[in-house]
Design a protein around this nucleic acid. Structure first.
Lengths: 247, 247
DNA sequence: CGCCTGATTGACGCGGTTCAACCTCAGTGG
DNA sequence: CCACTGAGGTTGAACCGCGTCAATCAGGCG
């Protein structure tokens, strides 16, 4: 299950998430300690990482890929409660059981630390705790923004919001011209979109079709999206122009 | 605007939230520092504490009362994203502007610290940062639980969930007999309930009536609720019996 | 080719919103 | 003392957005 290319410990210095992850503020000695504690593991798409209620004796940073955190009701209704992207932190120091299901959405590589030693590290190395606090506060803000989407937005606005987020990320990653058209691939299925947005796959499909019909987006195949006019899409999302932006 | 009885600084030793708030882990010297930094302020019911986007140069602990954190769309749709109860922390170290509106739901007294000195304290006093991290992680879990409610639960389940939370809190505060009936007052209006649950006031009213008709609750006046059988109410909330519980 | 998973589309119905009337109660002032 | 007022709450009727159920389509793979 170990990815061959990452099974031998890559150096933290070369790590792609070096300056965004929980270890971002660490230097020299501290980084050495982390280097000694870490181990990599790669999960295949769809593979469960933990189930809610399970013993959960490690914490980890996502190095590559996407993992989904979700909750399921007895009758099968499911709600995604977080998307874990590279540099995001997974796990809960001070808690021995997982609160949510976590599943690999794509192929995912984690940089893992045993929970106990990591908790000790938190006590002794303020830099890690401070960075974790920053990251957790950001996640809390993002979760609260998402609550507005889930509680008050229409299906069309929900889809538009999600596409706008993905378009913004694509634009920032690829340094595209502001105002120009943005194109990206949906990495996730309609089902994952529905779980994330609190909708059904049928509604997701219908609203995508409607947005295409109205010229807000261009769909090539079912997974490739082109946004001719980002402002137009943002207006459909119902976010006030000056307001905060979902991450 | 200062509450006369709290305007002179009450001692941290006697503080009702002494061992639950952000200062919980502090001892001796550290407490002295906080004691010197703090100032109290009381807000009247309905009074805004901050608006989203405003300069926000303090952080605070709620000492007494209830404050509501919420987000509003251009057209007036509103979603509450958090309820701040005594000992809860308000504010975001490292950020100069508020992300959400915060309003006093009842009369609220805050124990406030200027943001800059508090940030310095966070760097120098690990105990505060560690406690804040714990609290933030708990809030994040609660926000994620709420996402399931907003995204997937029916109106009846939403109301039942809220009542179950309030009943649990009442039972734990008043040490009631497990299995016995639980009675409590709704401290908030139908409008606040609707904003919290992502519903309209009409739907809130109708579902409360339906739960009363079905014997799940007894309503005395419009604000006093008696729960004859907690397990029955919990079943209506749709939470799986073994699962995690909203706080 | 057949099979399976993911996605689209249509028909239909329900749950929750919308709009509106009305009720209750606590002030408030004549 | 009672009329007036306004906020909070309840109830009814009609509408419609989205879920449900079901049929069909497209693409990948043995």
């Amino acid at each position: 299950m170990l990815a061959p290319d990452l099974a031998r410990k890559a150096s933290c210095e070369d790590c792609p998430i070096r300056h965004r992850a929980v270890c971002a503020h660490c230097e020299g000695d501290e980084l050495q300690v982390l280097e000694g504690m870490k181990s990599y593991r790669t999960y295949t798409p769809g593979e469960p990482i933990v189930w809610a209620g399970d013993d959960f004796n490690f914490v980890a940073s996502v190095v590559t890929g996407v993992a989904a955190m979700s909750q399921t009701m007895e009758d099968g209704r499911r709600q995604m409660v977080g998307l874990l992207l590279p540099s995001d932190f997974l796990g809960r120091p001070g808690r021995a059981h997982a609160a949510f299901d976590v599943t690999a959405a794509t192929s995912v590589t984690l940089c893992r630390f045993e929970r106990r030693p990591f908790e000790a590290l938190l006590r002794e190395t303020p830099a890690v705790g401070q960075r974790l606090l920053e990251m957790t506060l950001d996640e809390l803000d993002a979760a609260r923004e998402w609550m507005l989407l889930l509680g008050r937005k229409t299906a069309r606005e929900k889809i538009s919001s999600l596409l706008a987020i993905l378009a913004r990320r694509e634009a920032s990653l690829s340094q595209q011209i502001p105002g120009g058209e943005i194109a990206f691939d949906l990495q996730i299925t309609r089902e994952a979109m529905a779980d994330y947005l609190g909708l059904t796959i049928e509604t997701v499909s219908r609203q995508l079709t409607a947005l295409r019909r109205d010229g807000v987006i261009v769909l090539t195949g079912s997974r490739h999206v082109t946004v001719p006019d980002y402002d137009n899409l943002a207006a459909e999302a119902g976010d006030d122009a000056d307001g905060t932006q979902l991450t």
